[in-house]
Amino acid sequence: MSNTNGTAHYGFAERWLPRVVLAPSFLLSLVFIYGFIAWNGYLSFTASRMLPNYEWVGLAQYEALFASERWWVAVQNLGLFAVLFIAGAMGVGIFLAILLDQKIRAEGALRTIYLYPLALSFIVTGTAWKWMLNPGLGLEKLMHDWGFTSFTFDWLVNPDYSIYTVVIAAMWQSSGFVMALFLAGLRGIDDSIIKAAQIDGASLPRIYWRIVLPALRPVFFSTLMILSHIAIKSFDLVMALTGGGPGFSSDLPATFMYQMAFTRGQMGLGAASSMMMLATVAALVVPYLYSELRSKRRG
């Protein structure tokens, strides 16, 4: 169109301006995201220690990774953390939303209180919970000062339970957010549906279980997507709360990778572990993107 009724110069700008504007960010992401992914992939096949070197060792780093006990602890922790955190935050959030939906007074204030933790960074959450759960400083000390000297709550320093403190802190941070999502969904449900079910003789738990929650399926799935990605990328909370310890008992793959690549001079091993994380995320995201793109093309 610009060729026929616009000037040649105008046509040139119109055609090239978007590409010129987009080019820097395109180039940057090409180099710094995809380029570095590729570089990292290459490093995972090398014998890099403190600094990158290019001595090809094949799959040796992956063999070392799969033989490492610490890696399997991290993987196991991630599974435990993701399941408990998602189920816990979802359960608590839905329960709070149902309670708030009973037309109670001061609902606005309560909603804000529950939602506030989301405004904090995971670093702040982690630090605050570290103090509260510290046996010599927080809850346990408080109970001892009150005279309950037999009270112990030492999960933070107990290697068998340290990962559960991460779950508690993450649930505290995210439950209010889940509540807000579900509360919005509950508000969209016609009041008379609940009245009809009451007349039909259903108890309140049965009304929510059979009628209201099934109607919130879309909310359930969006919440699941959001919580899963929070779980997989969890790094800062663990660093602030337990630092992966005691020992490496509360390591997650992300903290494992950080430790190996940047503090213990095992860059090749760290690269291999990050490639495994990339593969995990890709296994989840690619089918999703595929179905999204396909439905868009059809639509």
């Binding site: 016609d190 008379s192 549906i193 009245k195 009809a196 007349i199 009628i211 109607a215 399926r217």
Partner: peptide, 14 residues
Amino acid sequence: IAMVFQSYALYPTM
């Protein structure tokens, strides 16, 4: 008693 509502109040997922 049985009641019929203005918005019909049918259970949406059933």
